[in-house]
Computed example of a mutant assay.
Amino acid sequence: MNNVIKLAGERANICRKRSSPHIFRHFYAVQCILNGIDIYTLSKLLDHSEISTTHRYLQSLEDFELINKAMPSSPLMNLNRR
């Protein structure tokens, strides 16, 4: 599988970045989180036996990314919309 991923990276002209199954899995997990999937569903999708394993993906996000994700559902930030 690793060779297939490397070959796909080369064909996509991705030379300066590492490409591996782990990198793609990490990218998928982070994008899911940023697009609103809850950590429990993501944990099931990734077939993690412990939620703490999935929680590691949250640690790779920057604070501003988490804030931007949280703002639309924050009751305090949406007081004027009622």
Rank of each mutant, 00 (worst) to 15 (best):
H26Q: 07
L61D: 04
H55R: 15
H26R: 15
G36I: 07
R18I: 10
I14T: 02
N78W: 00
E50I: 01
A29E: 00
A70N: 04
V4K: 13
I23M: 11
L66Y: 02
N3E: 15
P72W: 02
L46R: 06
N3K: 14
E65K: 08
H55Q: 15
L46W: 03
F27H: 03
N35G: 08
K44T: 09
Q59G: 13
F24T: 14
S20Y: 06
Y28R: 11
A12E: 08
T54R: 08
H26F: 00
R82A: 08
K6H: 05
L58G: 08
T54Y: 08
N80P: 04
N78M: 01
E65L: 01
I14E: 01
P75H: 00
A12C: 12
S74N: 12
N13F: 07
I23H: 05
G9K: 07
S52M: 11
N2C: 12
S43F: 03
Q31E: 06
S52P: 07
L58D: 04
H48Q: 07
N13S: 10
E10D: 09
M71G: 00
L61V: 07
N13M: 05
I51G: 09
Y57K: 01
R56M: 09
C32P: 01
R82H: 03
E10P: 00
S52E: 15
K69T: 05
G9R: 06
L61H: 09
K17A: 10
D63T: 12
K69E: 01
K6W: 05
A29R: 01
L66K: 15
F24K: 06
T41S: 13
S19P: 01
E50G: 00
I51K: 11
S73L: 06
R11D: 08
Q59F: 02
C15H: 14
E10L: 11
L66V: 15
H26C: 02
N35S: 14
D38F: 07
I51V: 15
E62C: 07
M1R: 14
E62M: 11
E62Q: 14
Y28L: 11
I67T: 10
R18P: 07
M71K: 11
I39F: 04
L7G: 07
K17W: 05
L46K: 05
F24R: 07
Y28V: 06
L46Q: 05
F64V: 10
N78L: 00
C15M: 10
R56F: 06
R18F: 04
N2W: 13
H55S: 13
A8C: 11
E65H: 12
L66A: 11
S60K: 05
I14H: 02
D38E: 08
A8L: 14
T53I: 14
Y28T: 10
K17L: 14
I37T: 08
H22D: 09
H26A: 06
H48N: 10
M1C: 15
L58V: 13
R25M: 04
R81L: 06
Y57R: 03
R56Y: 12
I37F: 05
L45A: 13
R16P: 00
I14N: 04
N13E: 13
R82W: 02
A29Y: 00
P72E: 02
A8R: 11
T41Y: 02
E10I: 14
S52L: 09
A70P: 04
H26D: 01
R25K: 09
R81W: 00
P72F: 00
R18K: 14
S49Y: 03
P21L: 11
Y57P: 06
D47Q: 12
L7I: 15
G9M: 04
P21E: 10
M71Y: 02
T53N: 11
I39M: 09
F27L: 03
H55N: 12
